[in-house]
């Protein structure tokens, strides 16, 4: 299955589905890298107001092709994870628009890596 940059997936709970609701994740890595060993890098989305902090990137419906399932969502920019393609057990739920994705990557570059992530 092709895992594309900007796609949003609900990834299964790492401790098993009976441990809680799966979180949506935005794919950060590009298709070419994702296909290389069937791995991909994502960043976590949450709607928890308790964990809204200095590393949160606020999300709005207009940033996505479809409205978000919940209000008050934000990306926890420092919580990036690596997964296998086979970890995906359901179709993608959304896609982030390119302009908003660029803003997210620039913010991650700036805050998490102290690098200037400019798109090509």
């Amino acid at each position: 299955m092709a895992v594309n940059q900007r796609d949003v997936y609900l990834l299964p709970h790492p401790f098993g589905n009976n441990h809680g609701e799966p979180h949506p994740h935005i794919v950060l890595s590009v298709l070419e890298a994702n296909q290389y060993e069937n791995t991909f890098v994502t960043v976590m989305i949450t709607s928890s107001s308790i964990t809204r902090d200095d590393f949160s990137f606020s999300l709005y419906d207009q940033m996505f092709e479809k409205p978000l399932a919940q209000k008050g969502c934000h990306v926890r920019m420092h919580l990036m994870t690596m997964s296998f393609g086979e970890d995906i057990d359901r179709p993608k739920i959304n896609t982030m628009k390119i302009v908003a994705f660029r803003q997210l990557m620039q913010r991650i570059g700036n805050l998490i890596f102290d690098y200037d992530f400019q798109p090509k």
Binding site: L11, H13, P14, F15, H23, M44, T46, S48, T51, R76, L79, M80, T81, M82, S83
Partner: peptide, 9 residues
């Protein structure tokens, strides 16, 4: 969420 992220990786 941090624990989950690390557990996933």
């Amino acid at each position: 969420e941090a624990i989950l992220a690390v557990a996933r990786s």
